[in-house]
């Protein structure tokens, strides 16, 4: 049982405050959806938790099972059990997917996985995500299509088995079939590992596969409303207009 507690989190980028007091608790087995307009700070929240160097936390705390996440380096956070599937995964020229995955698994698990079982594990995980085994020999994200990058992120989720996973718009850019495959991939991880999930999305279509326990509306750098799955449906039909006032002066102001 793991808990990620975000309390009164304020984050700035280049001295511009983007997050203005975020409170959110995600526990094992739970799925939280975050929805909100473009530029409201959703990715900022995700990256800040992962420790992206561009973001400065000016106030508040992030605790994983009581441990201070903000004082950990990026790699320590991952080894502590946090995982971020990025909205824009990064290309790493010259580093093969297979080398990358094995190095990451070795780091996160604390020992190198046995080569034979590891090969099987990777093969099976790629098959589940309907990824061509040839991807293992390609360079990390280099020349991957948008959808392929997202599958590769979920492949890592499946192999690294984090305690808490943040999925930042993993559904964006996926065609209908890919959305189903990726959602099934996420669900398989949820079923087998009891991961706590924070799912950032603009669309309810992924939520039909990955049912959230809670839906949070994000606007102007904070959570402005919370509810159950029905809230997502309402947002999709009504949009975010009603939250414009609540958001106050947005980060772009």
């Amino acid at each position: 049982m793991a808990t990620l507690a975000i309390r009164d989190l304020h984050v700035s980028v280049d001295d511009v405050e983007i997050l203005k007091g975020v409170d959110l608790t995600v526990a094992s087995g739970q799925t939280h959806a975050i929805m909100g307009p473009n530029g409201s700070g959703k990715s900022t929240l995700a990256y800040s938790i992962a420790g992206h160097p561009k973001y400065t936390v000016t106030r508040g705390e992030v605790l994983l099972d009581g441990e201070d996440v903000l004082s950990m380096s990026v790699d320590e956070r991952a080894r502590a059990g946090l995982f971020l599937a990025m909205q824009y995964p990064v290309e790493v020229a010259g580093v093969s997917v297979s080398n990358f995955l094995r190095t990451a698994a070795t780091a996160v698990r604390g020992e190198a996985p046995k080569l034979r079982t590891w090969m099987k594990e990777v093969k099976a995980a790629m098959a589940d995500l309907e990824m061509d085994p040839a991807f293992a020999e390609r360079n990390v994200n280099e020349g991957f299509s948008g959808g392929e990058k997202k599958r590769h992120e979920i492949l890592q989720l499946a192999l690294l088995k984090p305690k808490i996973a943040i999925l930042d718009e993993t559904d964006s850019g996926l065609d209908v079939d890919a959305l189903r495959v990726v959602s099934q991939g996420v669900n398989a991880v949820r079923a087998s590992t009891d991961v706590g999930t924070l799912l950032i999305t603009h669309y309810t279509r992924i939520l039909r596969y990955v049912t959230p326990d809670f839906v949070h509306v994000f606007a102007g750098g904070r959570i402005v409303e919370e509810g159950g799955p029905e809230l997502a449906e309402r947002l999709e039909s009504e949009g975010y207009a009603r939250y414009a006032a609540l958001a106050g002066s947005g980060p772009a102001a």
Binding site: G51, A78, P89, V90, E91
Partner: peptide, 25 residues
């Protein structure tokens, strides 16, 4: 630095992540 962040966000320590990028180069 983004490459470094990406590798480290998968648990790979900084020294090793740098090594991977430079070796690849």
């Amino acid at each position: 630095d983004l490459q470094l962040f990406y590798l480290m966000s998968r648990g790979i320590p900084e020294t090793e992540a740098r090594q991977m990028v430079v070796r690849a180069f």
